[in-house]
Simulated scan of single mutants.
Amino acid sequence: MVRLTAPRVMMLLTAALLLTYGSVAAPAPAPRGGDGVPPDQLAKAEPGVVVTSGAPTTATAALAMPPRTAPELFPPAGKTFIGVMTAQGPYDFTAVDRFTTAAKRQPQVMLFSSGWATDRFDRTVFDRVRERGMLPMLGWEPWDYRVDTAARKKKISARRIDQIRSAQPAYRLSRIAGGDFDGYLRSWAEGIRSLGYPVAIRFAHEMNGDWYPWCELTNRNRPGDYVRAWRHVHDVFREAGATNVTWVWSANVRWSRSTPKLSAYYPGDAYVDWLGVTGYYGTGAFSAYRSFDAIFKKTIAEMRTLSRKPVVITETGASDATGRKAEWIRETFRVLPRYPDIIGLIWFEVNKELDWRIVSSAAASKAFAQAVAASRYHLTWSPDMVPRTEVGGG
């Protein structure tokens, strides 16, 4: 009888462990036939995934890789954001603070303008808006706005001002599409890419009018020039890797049948993320009282023949010329839920030509605050959120 000493016991246990490893964990022989690829040439497993016969099992892969949660969309399903535009924009938040106090609601988006003739990319402008908990929306305007400022000082008619400011050959659409501004475009694209958080760009808005140099009806622009210019700007940003941009195509409401159809100006869904529309109660064709439906409904319906992208009211406001401003605000927010594809409304909080601000009267402030107290407007924006680019869904 063999005496089991301690060394012999250890030898037997070691041998048993080696036999077990050889029969269970040792790699199987390389398969022959079929593709004939040996296991050491198969795709490597993710770190931490146990590999059996050269491939991870579903169970082990699930254990090793934690599930990824989808980023939260802005705005969330069933919600509508409130935005604001002021005269001073990110350079002075006094008007924003007054708007917030009157509305009793923090706006989630801030629209501000920048003209090509004078402005260069400045990160601090965007960071100020972000730090206030608002998505920056850049109203990017290819013109020299000083022409407009000078014309207004002459105390001439509004129509004459439109004619003067729209004649700026240096900013003709064909020059934009032809690459004359590519260096400028790239500087902004690289700057916005470096921000690392979402930014919306409303480029060359109200293109279906005749009061800006980028409108096809002015400045010796030709049919098709607007779409070519838009696509070129978009492509420069894409080539620069500025994928954090939400592109906002923003038309003016059609005020008569004589105005151009929107289809002539739409660049296509591959180049647009949000459909924008501008309309006001209390000016021009809408001087007499007209409801939100009367101002916006037909234009939004026309947009729907072009795209199913989400809609944003990119500028709106109401005057109190006939004493019905508060009434218009109440009615607007009462019908807004009937447009489930409208994901946001930006209020023009400026006293310009007419006083569009909600702080213009206690009645207007109260009406606005009561309207946006509804749960559909209760939301926040954060840089981690992803702008919603499809209607519906979670």
Rank of each mutant, 00 (worst) to 15 (best):
L306G: 09
I300Q: 10
M207N: 03
K261I: 01
V96Q: 07
A55R: 13
P337M: 10
I156H: 05
W247H: 11
R32L: 12
G323I: 04
R257T: 10
G279C: 11
P29C: 02
G279S: 05
S53G: 10
R159D: 14
G191I: 09
Q370Y: 00
T332A: 11
V335I: 11
F112C: 08
T299L: 05
W140Q: 08
T389V: 13
F237M: 08
A362L: 10
D40F: 15
I156T: 11
I161T: 06
E327V: 12
S375A: 15
L138Y: 05
G115I: 06
A25C: 13
A373H: 09
T118C: 01
G22F: 11
K154D: 08
V233C: 12
H205C: 00
P267Q: 04
V359M: 08
I192M: 05
G282W: 01
S187H: 11
R376F: 00
G191L: 08
T314C: 10
A326T: 02
E72H: 04
D210S: 15
S319G: 15
L63N: 09
G392E: 00
L135A: 05
N252Q: 07
G279Y: 03
T100M: 06
W116T: 02
A16N: 06
S250T: 11
S263N: 07
G224N: 04
S113R: 04
I164Y: 04
P198W: 02
G54Y: 11
E353P: 02
V125N: 09
V277P: 04
R105W: 01
S307T: 02
E46Q: 11
S319W: 01
A204C: 12
Y145G: 06
E327I: 10
R8V: 12
L217W: 00
L73V: 07
W188M: 10
Q88L: 14
A367E: 09
R220S: 12
A150I: 02
W211D: 04
I346P: 01
L262F: 06
L345M: 09
A318C: 14
T278S: 15
R357V: 08
I295W: 09
M385K: 13
L4I: 12
P142F: 02
Y226W: 03
M85Y: 08
T380D: 07
A87I: 13
Q106N: 14
S174C: 07
R324L: 15
G241A: 09
P223F: 11
Y339Q: 06
P66N: 08
A26K: 08
I156G: 05
I156N: 05
V248A: 04
K297I: 02
G344W: 09
L18F: 13
R222A: 12
H378I: 10
T332E: 00
L73R: 10
T69L: 13
W214D: 00
K261H: 05
G317E: 03
V359Y: 05
S194M: 05
P267T: 02
P90I: 03
M137D: 09
M11A: 15
G284S: 11
R105F: 02
L73H: 08
G191T: 03
A150W: 02
T218V: 11
G282F: 01
P223I: 07
F93T: 06
P66D: 03
W381C: 07
V129L: 05
Y226S: 10
R123V: 04
R120G: 13
A28N: 14
G89Q: 01
R32F: 07
E349Q: 14
V2Y: 03
